[in-house]
Simulated assay, not measured.
Amino acid sequence: MRVESLFNYPLKGCRANPMLEAKLGSLGVQGDRRFMAVTHRGQFVNGKKFPKLVLVTCRIDNEQSVIFSAPNMPELKVDLTADDGRVDVRVWRSDVNAKSLGDKANSWISDFLGGDFRLCFYDQNSHRQVNSLPEYPVSFSDSAPVLVASRQSLEALNAYTGRVDKIEQFRPNLVVDADSAFAEETWQRIRIGEVELLAVKGCARCPVINTDVEFAQPDPNQEPLRSLTKLHRRVSDGKVIFGQYFVVTQPGRVVKGDQVEVLQSRPAEQYQPLPDEEQEQYTITFEPMTLNARSAANETILEVAEAAGVALASSCRGGSCGTCRVKLLSGEVEVGADYALTEQEIEQGYILACSCFARSDLVIALED
């Protein structure tokens, strides 16, 4: 097994920078996800709501300056040694004190995205930890410093969908020629060149992967996430997984073509089976329109609603945002994930349509 591709993404959500070699330190691939766009309140901005971010290219010059470019925008060079103050920002549930890139940079990203935004930098005075391994730092990556995916996983997904999606849509740092599809999810410890990595968790996917990286256009049929949901949904929590997050335990250099050695494996997770026409079917009634739809046991309520033409808003498709909240009026469901719900909401009967499966006939009330 060998490394086929290396990428970094200096600005969270930006276009991938292909690399022939890379230094990996405690924060992962050098320069990766060190910059981030945020709202005026400090909340991070990603490609889910602003697909245009994938059109931004970002280059770091020896930690002294950074250059941003985007279609129909003047090139912006920012001096990273200038004192433009600091800003408190939030990425998912983590609060981070970051370096501000100044008014000129803020105006540039605001003009490009169309709103009131800021650009910030994770510098030597910024601090954030991996949630499950607090002894390891992480910059503005979602969960951990290094994301690894295999070419075979992408080939399996493309074979299932009949599409030709690109690995850059999944935003990995290292792409590996593995023994089989999704093999990377069984790697606990690996060595690549001088570097050793320790697994953190699988990468749960959201609609960002539906965005075409050349034109920043989200797929109207919500592919490939819709198909990946059927192909590779984890049984334990209902999350849709593609790729594996790692921390760096031994820093060093990785070169394209380096051998990947698995030092320690772990048991494979269980995943939902592919749709089976013979499995038990249930009727879901959506109120207030009293629309009835049939559901297979391994289809989420959201998938059933979409197939039936029910206008049900959704976003993450993994139980973390709460957009698809509905109320269960009657029946039994299997809950895959409910992270976005409060205990009070759960007691009131609210569920997340993207992460629940019918286990009897249901009556569902849609949100106003």
Rank of each mutant, 00 (worst) to 15 (best):
R234E: 11
L147N: 05
H232D: 08
A144H: 07
Y350H: 08
L197E: 05
A82Y: 02
L352C: 02
G257K: 11
Q169N: 12
Q281K: 14
P137F: 01
L329A: 10
L302G: 04
G349K: 06
L6N: 09
V262D: 01
V247N: 12
S295R: 00
V29E: 04
E287G: 09
T300L: 03
S139T: 10
E278A: 14
E21V: 06
K23H: 15
P18G: 14
V66E: 05
R90M: 12
Y160K: 10
H127M: 12
L6D: 07
Q217D: 05
S227P: 05
V3F: 05
C206S: 07
Q124D: 15
V130E: 03
D32R: 05
R15L: 10
Q250R: 15
P273K: 09
N221A: 14
F44G: 03
Q129V: 14
N125L: 13
P251G: 00
G47A: 05
K52A: 08
R118V: 00
R171L: 01
S100E: 00
K77R: 14
P137K: 02
L157H: 02
E63F: 11
K99F: 11
E287T: 11
Q43V: 15
A70G: 07
T229A: 15
K166H: 12
S236V: 13
A293M: 01
W187T: 00
L341G: 10
R266L: 10
S139E: 01
P275H: 01
Q30S: 14
R189N: 11
K99W: 11
L274M: 09
L53N: 03
T300Y: 02
L302F: 06
